[in-house]
Write a protein that binds this DNA or RNA. Structure first.
Length: 228
DNA sequence: CCAGACGTTGTT
DNA sequence: GTCTGG
DNA sequence: CCAGACGTTGTT
DNA sequence: GTCTGG
């Protein structure tokens, strides 16, 4: 699963992943992005626009906002079957930027230990996602999205059985293209991102609280040596 | 036909 | 136990 | 994902 | 809005 992640990159690094996007503003680093918060994305609708959507999919037909609490992830194995997702695969794909994510493992003691996972290169990457547009009772439009998951790779398997679908950079244009052979691409994306390009660290349980998103907590959250 | 769901993870 | 909010 | 709430009447 | 279950 993917229920929490980080994005501390500058706009410039994100522009490298999607050359067609217009220069966006720089933004504050975020180390503890939780469902219901805004996530930085590019939608297949407009590959030139960097925009925020809310994490937690609210399908256009939903009468209530609360369904978004549930639809934070979509299993790639069943994405073509699920009522809430299958139509979106054809028409409403997106990418969501991150440079690391968290997974939890349960200990014998009922406590949960968080781990931070990122690329060895420390580069920003793109999750594969789906989005939709919903109108609230006041007729205001809200764009929301969900992150696609797959089985865990060899690195992550030790702590957890699922992980987010990370798009290899060369597949980003395909995922955002409107002439998509999604059958083939989806089959390809079931294969989890390669483990030897990633690294994983146990981190402080400070990250358990989604309100701890201060850059000042980074050294506490990432307690190993790599943030000197 | 209508009513109710529409999801994932992990645990029992 | 289950839902809501972040 | 985790943390925290989960409620009403009536006013300190 | 559309499918599933009864």
């Amino acid at each position: 699963m993917c229920g929490r992640f980080a994005l501390s990159a500058k706009t410039r690094q994100i522009e490298k992943l999607v050359p067609s996007i217009k220069r966006g503003p720089d933004f504050e680093p975020r180390y503890n992005i939780a469902p219901s918060q805004k996530v930085l994305s590019v939608l297949n609708d407009d590959n030139s626009e960097l925009q925020y959507i809310r994490w937690g999919l609210i399908p256009f037909w939903s009468k209530t906002e609360s369904i978004g609490n549930k639809l934070i992830n979509a299993r790639i194995e069943t994405i073509r079957e699920r009522q809430s997702f299958r139509n979106l695969v054809k028409s409403r794909r997106c990418i969501i930027f991150a440079d690391g994510f968290y997974e939890w493992t349960k200990n014998s003691s009922k406590t949960k230990t968080p781990y931070f996972i990122r690329l060895k290169s420390q580069e920003t990457f793109a999750f594969a996602g789906l989005w939709d547009s919903w109108k609230n009772p006041e007729n205001q439009t809200l764009r929301t999205g969900t992150i696609i998951t797959t089985e865990a790779n060899e690195l992550i398997k030790g702590i957890h059985n699922r992980m987010p679908v990370i798009l290899p950079n060369d597949l980003i244009p395909q995922w955002l293209s409107n002439e998509l052979f999604y059958e083939e691409l989806i089959a390809e994306l079931k294969e989890p991102f390669k483990a030897d390009a990633m690294e994983m660290f146990e981190v402080s349980s400070l990250v358990n609280n989604p309100r701890n998103d201060s850059p000042l907590n980074v050294k506490e959250i990432l307690k190993t040596s790599f943030f000197e």
